[in-house]
Amino acid sequence: MTTYIYGIAAATHPALPEGMGGIGDPAHKVRVVRHGDLAALVSDSPDDLRPKRRDLLAHQSVLDEAGAAGPVLPMRFGSLAEDDDSVVAVLADRAEHYTERLRALEGKAEYNVKAAHDEQAVLHQVLAENPELRSLVEVNRRAGGGSYEQKLRLGEQVTAAVWAREAGDGAEVRRALEPCADSVSAGPEGTGWLANVSFLVARDSADGFVAAVEELRRNQPHLELRVHGPLPPYSFVDPGPARPADDAAGVR
């Protein structure tokens, strides 16, 4: 029987969700494997575990539940150990590192911010700033929308102008919110947004972070901002030697 690992917490964590339903259908019960100062949240795993919606949600829910009461190092989805003993071995082997991380993340949560352009608004801006594009639009309109070639020419230039704004706006999102966070991590690239950035925010200053997001919304109304948090600190569990958590937020 393989053991699925959700996350690692301190053995002193006040409310680990033992017995909660985890992955699988029917859901396997969450267990706690302890060793020394550490505890791992685990459950049995279905033999055919796949990244299905239900199991992803279960992974996330277990970590949410545990994270609400104390720091947890979230595992990436789909980590399997041979058995509980293998989990214990890992806890023993890297106790110092995990303990340090748990201390560093205590009282902090991840907020993920994704930004996209409000297309109408950004087109207005791009045209407002660029008389040449505006006249191209006018020419096309007078020609009843323009020929295929005219449309292509206009579209290509507008697209380039919008992309140029994306780069600047992406940097602006980070710049505006960075001061309210302890640490910042660029999220995986995707095509649905111009910025995908995770911020590590102290829970007791979360209000300030949310206020900064609101201010950004007001100041940059052409940006659609989606904020998710508090989340388990997925992006801040293991910054690696090249990027210590302490100065990850520092920009030279």
Partner: peptide, 13 residues
């Protein structure tokens, strides 16, 4: 993408 692409990875697992 955070659940699938971030989070702790342990090479023993």
């Amino acid at each position: 993408e955070l659940i699938l692409d971030r989070g702790l990875v342990i090479d023993a697992f």
